[in-house]
Every structure is written in C-alpha cells, then in structure tokens.
Design a protein around this nucleic acid. Structure first.
Lengths: 211, 211
DNA sequence: GTCTATAATTCGATAGAC
DNA sequence: GTCTATCGAATTATAGAC
C-alpha cells in the first residue's frame, strides 16, 4: 500500500499534468507524456480522471487560482496608498517572475477554449459573491477622496497596474532571445523593469497641489 | 485555367490557413479544415507547402509582420511629442482592435514553439540591421532633452506604452464574458479604455516646471 | 495542377488479467 | 489499483490516376 512517502498517485498525475499542460498547451499535450512524467501507466490517467478533458480542467482550475491569488495576496490595507501600491507591485511582480509559465499558459489557453473553461474562471473569481478585486476598488476610491492620488477611475487604474506588471514579464523570454541578452543583462533588465513600474504609475497618479 | 477573378490557389490556401491557425493555434489546427475553408483538396496543401509545419511558418511570418507594422505605421515625427504620443496610441489601439486575433495568436503561440519561430521573428524585426523601434527611442530621447517630457528611459517608456495599449484588449473578451457585459456596455468599455491610456501616460511623463 | 484513395502514424480510450 | 495489450478514430502525408 501507500506509505507516508508516497504522494498518492492521483496527485502525482496532477502535478505531472500541470507541468506538461503549462508547457505544451491543451492540444499540444500528450497523455503519454504526462504518464511518463508521473511515473505511472497511461491507463491510470483515465482511471483517475476519465478523460484528457477532465484532467485539463483540473489543471486549469489550479492555474486560475494561482492567477487570482497573485492579485489578492499580500495586501496590507493599513498603509498609505503609496506604500500599498509599492508593496503590491513588488509582490505581484515577484509572483509573476516565480510563475511565468502560469501567466503564459493563462493567456495562451483561455482563448482557444470553451465556455466550460470560462465558467471555471468565473466561479473561481467570485468568492462569496464578491469579485476579488472589489477591495481594491474601494481602497482606490478612498485614496481619491482623501487626495492621496488624483481623480481616476478605479477600474482603469486596476487595469493599468496589471498591464504594467504583467506585460513585460510575459514577453520577456522573447525579448531576451531576440535582443540576445546575456544572463547578467537579463537580470539587470528585470531589476530595471521592477523599479520602473512603480515610478511610472506613481508619477501619473500622485496628488499635486498646484493643478 | 485561372481567370483574373481567381486569387490563385496558393494564396487561397494561405488565407484559409491564416484564419484557422489564428483561431485554433498550431496544435489545434487540422489540415482538413484549412482545405475545406480554402475550397480545395487537402492534398493540394501538401503540394504547395509540403508540410503543416511549413504552412504554419508562412502564416506566422505574416503575423509577425502585422504585429510590427502595428507599431511602426502611422508615425508622424514632425509633430510635438504630446501629439505624436496621442496619435500613436490612437492608431495602435485601432490596429489592435481590428486585429485582435493576431495579438491573441501572437502571445499564445510564440511560447510553445521552437527557435525556428523565434528566428522568423528576429529576422522580421531587424530591417536594414536596425530594429524597428530605434526611431522611437531617438524621438523619446529628443523629447527628454528638449524638456517636452520628464527624464525617462526610452526602452521603459516604449514598454509602458505597449503594455497599456495591448494588455486590456488581449484580455477584453475574457473580461466581457466574466463581467457579463452587454454589447453596448462592451463598446463603452472600449471607448473608456482608449481615452484612459493616453491620459495616464501623459500625466506620468509630461514635463512639470516646479519639480 | 488537382483529385481520389490510402498508407503510416499518432493518440485517446478501454478491455481484461492480475 | 495497476498493468499490458489493443482498439478505433483522427490526422498528416503520399502515391498515382487524370
């Protein structure tokens, strides 16, 4: 039987599937490759998950959770807005860097696929009937009201922040390749980008008396 | 024989392939579907392009060209920087809206695939041994020097603009679905976004005397 | 050049022994 | 629960007639 060192076959399969689906996409993934990576027989994949589609959905659910977690985790709303923003960007970019595959996968796969997948996304996004980004909006509105920042639509600011956080790191591997950067140069590019995002946003939104 | 109304079989195939690959991705595309859409026999696809991979590469090349064209077209460098920026964002977003599929495809497919694909990208990007974005950099540097805008690294500003232009429109279909927007609301969201991008950037970079 | 027919292979899925 | 063996469908690619 399973001893305590065994992870359980079902989870081993899920871990392997996660890795392969993220690398190859849904259509590009082969059940055999997942089985090999999990160290089990291909038939077991069907025993536990019945079909490739089911296995994919299980993986996709995890990806969505990671994506959403990357936004809502580590928010400390007791600080001033400037510090909240700085801290959020720092943490968010850190998460993106540690989960590049997740973000690539997320943007790659969502399109191709059905309402089935969109439904998983929608369900996961709405926790307790409240979208995860709602707290964000409220804090932004407060910051505007209390003149911590200039007047700006919370939704737009939210999208602006996500855009600037995510876009570069999604295209970074491509950029590194075509610009032929050395590993050292790549690290520098990442550090430069991390600094830039907060400055750029803050320069745009900080409240200025004169105006 | 072909009369002048015929587009030529090779091009008909390419047009069909473009449409199917953009919708389904490389792994998800079936040669039969391309043949059906082109109104020709499947065997002809292999006659003209020898393999699915070749056909894919031909399509990918076109996509890269559109992507790059979306950045370099419609640049009028005789204006002041504020007007150049406004005009660029306007035109760029227009192109993105008209070619949503291209951008989705571009971000979806580049990762999965080989150096083969990256090589096509690199070749297309460097025209006359000069990256297409070089003219951009020079104009930004000039704007900084002449105090049209605050000091900012041209590369970072370039990435910031692309991020804010592209990201929203790439995730928009997903956003529309999960937020359950009506077509009218969707149009409004797009118009709001178009306005926001320029304002946000300009507020961040415009030169301010006091400082 | 274009078509039909089919080869060759890959892949998801399942039956059935243990 | 796990494995071997294999089915059957799907898919790329090609041979060969016209």
């Amino acid at each position: 039987m399973n001893n305590s060192l065994d992870k359980g076959v079902e989870e081993k399969i899920l871990v392997a599937a996660y890795s392969v689906f993220l690398q190859k996409g849904k259509a590009g993934t082969r059940m055999q490759e997942i089985a090999d990576k999990a160290g089990v027989n291909k038939a077991l994949l069907h025993y536990y998950f019945r079909s490739k589609n089911n296995l994919y959905n299980a993986v996709f659910k995890q990806v969505v959770e990671k994506f959403i977690l990357s936004i809502v985790q580590n928010l400390n709303f007791s600080l001033g807005f400037k510090e909240i923003l700085k801290e959020f960007i720092f943490q968010h970019i850190k998460t993106i860097k540690d989960n590049k595959q997740v973000f690539k996968f997320f943007f790659s796969e969502v399109w191709m696929n059905s309402e089935e997948v969109m439904e998983i996304f929608q369900k996961t996004l709405n926790i307790q009937n409240k979208p995860v980004y709602a707290v964000f909006y409220e804090r932004i509105e407060k910051a505007v009201k209390e003149k911590e920042i200039r007047a700006i639509d919370p939704f737009q600011l939210f999208i602006n922040i996500l855009s600037l956080d995510i876009f570069f790191f999604v295209i970074a591997p491509m950029y590194f390749t075509i610009a032929e950067l050395t590993p050292d140069e790549q690290e520098k590019a990442v550090r430069d980008r991390e600094k830039e995002v907060f400055i750029f946003i803050w320069e745009s939104i900080k409240f200025r008396k004169g105006k």
